[in-house]
Design a protein around this nucleic acid. Structure first.
Lengths: 350, 350
DNA sequence: TTGTACGCGTTATCAC
DNA sequence: GTGATAACGCGTACAA
């Protein structure tokens, strides 16, 4: 079943059917209605390959997730949330979402090849790009249209991105902790090859400096975005008596809390903990985690929106979008917010 | 840059280039090499739309995830693992993966429309299909090629699926608990509209009957696949003095453990807990969760493999694949496995 | 407002 | 072993 068939049944020419489908103006209402009826009745959908061949557009967005397995499907809900945001916008704009996941032990270069060479998608959304990432080099070299999620590792006029103001957010977190009376504030970062992790560390340092506090290397652990590194990093930091630990991400923060508690210390009384992202785990942890919320879903949908606008020529590159963050205060920094849980806990013990 | 351009540079005809690209036999080695060189040098990839138009194949698999937002990106790593499995096989076979996620409050019928009408993919992988699911009706009506993950809600000769033997697995779990001396075994299920949940409940009942134990409705809670329902269900069951609770999934089990412990009871001493899936959370819970492992990733890759075989005509439908399960015993049922954690716990309290 | 004719880049079917 | 040539189904300039 194709345009020709529909045209025959409606007693018009193929072009008219095409015009109706593409909602072009110069078709009489009577004809339009007749054609639409047949289309509906036959449940007709134009052949996407034929359409793509002539329009040079597939209406597909590519999404590349180069993280190794455990980060993607482990205790981390970052990528699923991002995908949900992208999917939402794709649906609204009638785009499909083609997904590439790196395999567990795939070399980064092979993944870059796979993604960049596929010509199907009209544009790409790249996540977790690192310094000297071959995928970035390839898409730039092939001059493909793309949008990065997170801040890019290099400045380049051809790079569009959507990110949050990591530096300002961490500065705010430090200021908040100081105002709460904390002075020995530590930081456990994600892998610094990812720009967001580096920016958060920078923001942390800025915050200290701005408050006239020293930056103590012993209170800094450069780790990775997972629970385990949060745990290990905290174990290394605890001997130096921190009274607060800022984690580069919520997943890290869960490991931090775990390590603090396993060391026989209390959160937040002895050590306050702040995360980043406001993932699902943040509100479910014990105590609930103070964190910096930035809607990962909004980042995803914004990136998709931006990419579609670029594809359809409504915007010129480079586009740089910085979304706002918000400090969400919960029990891991403020004992007053623990009243409910705390009472029942104490009640049980006594 | 297209076939014609390559042909000109190589001094051959378009057809020959096509033959080289598609690895057809009747090309002389010299010509082949010359053409391959040019292709590599120009970094040429054939236009997928043109190819799809004539072969009637896009080399794309569609994956539909109709769950509401929170189930997908909440504390549940089931879908990411499944995707990873599908992606792995897709990559190996040179297929792309087109993903549809239902939006948070999208009506099921709208989602079914979106998925079934898109003609891009050569075949579909359907997850979480429920009874009377419009998506199932639609793909059957449109006679689309698809593979279901999980056992289908109805018997139909056109339905291919990959699943695990839920019934046998739960029977084994019950037998194990009985052998451990448990007698009042309860069950908290996922939504029974999903066949897997229903089968697990059936397996639980079978296990009891087989052992000559009564099936007590008071020890059964029909819930949903999330932590919250595990918690609530357990609260309803606890007054009836269970000594073991089998959860329909690991996420549910986490809620179960939480409720048991909040009620002042010990796991596993007072109440043993068994999950299903062996998700990441299972080994990280406290105590670590005894669970029924079935490799979600393998289910995904098997489904993709099966679908590709069907697409390429190597298999006839219906294909029904049942993958094995394995009972993983951890601390939530066996106190002996708690020595390490248990000691430190007790050490702290005394 | 509608119809005609051509081109998009590839594969498939013939000849040679 | 290689090269013309006809599809595939659609969009679109141009003619009517």
């Amino acid at each position: 079943m194709n345009l020709e068939d529909i045209a025959r049944k409606a007693g018009v020419s193929r072009s008219t059917v095409s015009r109706v489908i593409n909602e072009e103006p110069h078709v009489s209402d009577r004809t339009r209605e007749r054609v639409l009826n047949i289309i509906q009745q036959e449940d007709f959908q134009p052949n996407p390959a034929a359409r793509a061949l002539v329009t040079r557009r597939s209406n597909i967005l590519g999404v590349a997730i180069p993280q190794t397995t455990n980060v993607f499907f482990g205790d981390n809900s970052y990528f699923p949330m991002l995908l949900q945001g992208i999917a939402e916008m794709s649906n609204n704009c009638d785009y499909g979402m083609l997904l590439w996941l790196a395999e567990s032990h795939e070399i980064r270069d092979g993944f870059a090849q796979r993604v960049a060479r596929h010509r199907q998608p009209d544009g790409l959304i790249l996540t977790s790009v690192i310094e000297n990432d071959p995928i970035l080099e390839r898409v730039l070299y092939l001059d493909r249209l793309f949008v990065m999620v997170e801040t890019p590792p290099i400045e380049d006029d051809r790079i569009n991105y959507v990110t949050v103001d990591n530096i300002a957010a961490e500065e705010e977190a430090v200021a908040y902790l100081i105002q709460q009376g904390r002075r020995r504030i530590a930081h456990v970062s994600g892998q610094l090859t990812i720009r967001d992790a580096a920016d958060r560390l920078t923001g942390y340092m800025n915050g200290l400096i701005r408050a006239g506090l020293p930056v103590d290397e012993k209170l800094i652990y450069r780790g990775r975005f997972d629970r385990q590194h949060g745990f290990i990093g905290t174990q290394q930091i605890l001997p130096h008596k921190p009274d607060a630990i800022i984690a580069g991400g919520d997943t890290i923060a869960i490991g931090v809390i775990d390590a603090v508690q396993k060391a026989g210390l209390r959160v937040p009384d002895d050590v306050a903990v702040i995360g980043f992202d406001d993932l699902d785990v943040a509100s479910h942890s014990n105590p609930p985690l103070t964190t910096i919320r930035h809607s990962v879903q909004t980042v995803g949908s914004t990136a998709a929106q931006l990419l579609i606008d670029l594809i359809e020529g409504r915007l010129e590159r480079p586009q740089r979008i910085v979304l706002p963050t918000e400090l969400i205060v919960r029990g891991s920094t403020d004992p007053n917010l623990l009243i409910e849980g705390g009472v029942s806990q104490k009640g049980k013990q006594s």
